[in-house]
Write a protein that binds this DNA or RNA. Structure first.
Lengths: 161, 161
DNA sequence: ACAATAGTTGACTAAATTAATAGGGTTTAG
DNA sequence: CTAAACCCTATTAATTTAGTCAACTATTGT
């Protein structure tokens, strides 16, 4: 498991999509403008998301992207897996052609760590992220001058759902 | 927070170090050979680890590296932070010069996720990783001929949890 | 004390991978 | 038929990873 800006962009874009898809397909051009992510880059990312069955596309005018399944069933891990592609982090190519116990060490260790991080990200679903974001936005709208910043404790609560 | 092979190499090397430092300073040449990581690359990594006060170096013959503090007090997060360096993942440079609610979205979201992953990795200390590894090694030593190799399906299962 | 040796340190370079951009092609509603 | 959208592929730019080389430092054997 790799964690880079690519995955971050993808998650951000997916949240944007989640916030608007009720009004029909969402265009990449819109996401691009709102989130300040280059259109061509978004196209690449959504190509992958589509091929992984996470989003559906509608072509032609009035088209765009929608979620392929309920947002509760889409985890951050799904998204990152889709855009960040395979990677084997072990010398031995993941197929155990290690020669002594030591070489295998790296192997197992990272498989374990991977599993842990995945497990965590698997537990964070898009629905809750979108909900958080929507409520935050609504709140900000109701009192514009008093711009709000979350404290650390609050942040934790938010992320944990 | 970024998660790449660089951090993985660093953690692997640190575990190797942890498994041997009781017999005095451990040389990078040894780690290099055992873990199959290029010596020069290790030098770079340990330069950073040293500057971050995670390891101490002893120069001259019989020299090498040792932990700068008890392994229980060294977390995976510490190691990754040391080698993977700065990064701000937000458009607005992390200083909140965002102009509207949307731009800030990315910002907060990723700060939250970062914090979480860090918190998790902060909870994994080197001592336990080393211990696991040592016991696993001992176990392998007791039954040498029955070398076990995972099949692809098994691997998949392991990785996916 | 002196040379040889084992080891770290840091600067620089090259290769490989990733991220991002650009520019065309394809489908479809109106 | 045309404009709005997705869809692909190639190219460029940036970052990471890896490797090289030449000091510098401390120990040890003589």
């Amino acid at each position: 498991m790799r964690l880079t800006t690519k995955g971050r962009f993808a998650v951000t874009a997916m949240i944007d999509l989640g916030m608007r898809q009720q009004r029909g397909p969402v265009t990449l051009a819109g996401i691009s403008e709102r989130q300040k992510i280059s259109l061509s880059y978004l196209e690449q990312l959504f190509g992958r998301l589509r091929r992984h069955g996470i989003v559906d596309s509608v072509r032609g005018p009035g088209g765009g992207y929608t979620m392929a399944r309920p947002m509760v069933e889409i985890s951050v891990a799904d998204i990152i897996r889709a855009v960040d592609e395979p990677i084997d982090a072990t010398q031995c190519g993941g197929l155990g052609n290690c020669h002594d116990g030591h070489e295998c060490m790296t192997h197992e260790l990272w498989i374990n760590l991977n599993e842990h991080i995945y497990r965590y990200l698997e537990g964070v679903d898009l629905a809750s992220l979108v909900e958080t974001q929507l409520s935050k936005q609504a709140e900000a709208g109701s009192r514009k001058d008093e711009r709000r910043v979350l404290g650390t404790a609050e942040l934790k609560a938010v992320v944990n759902g």
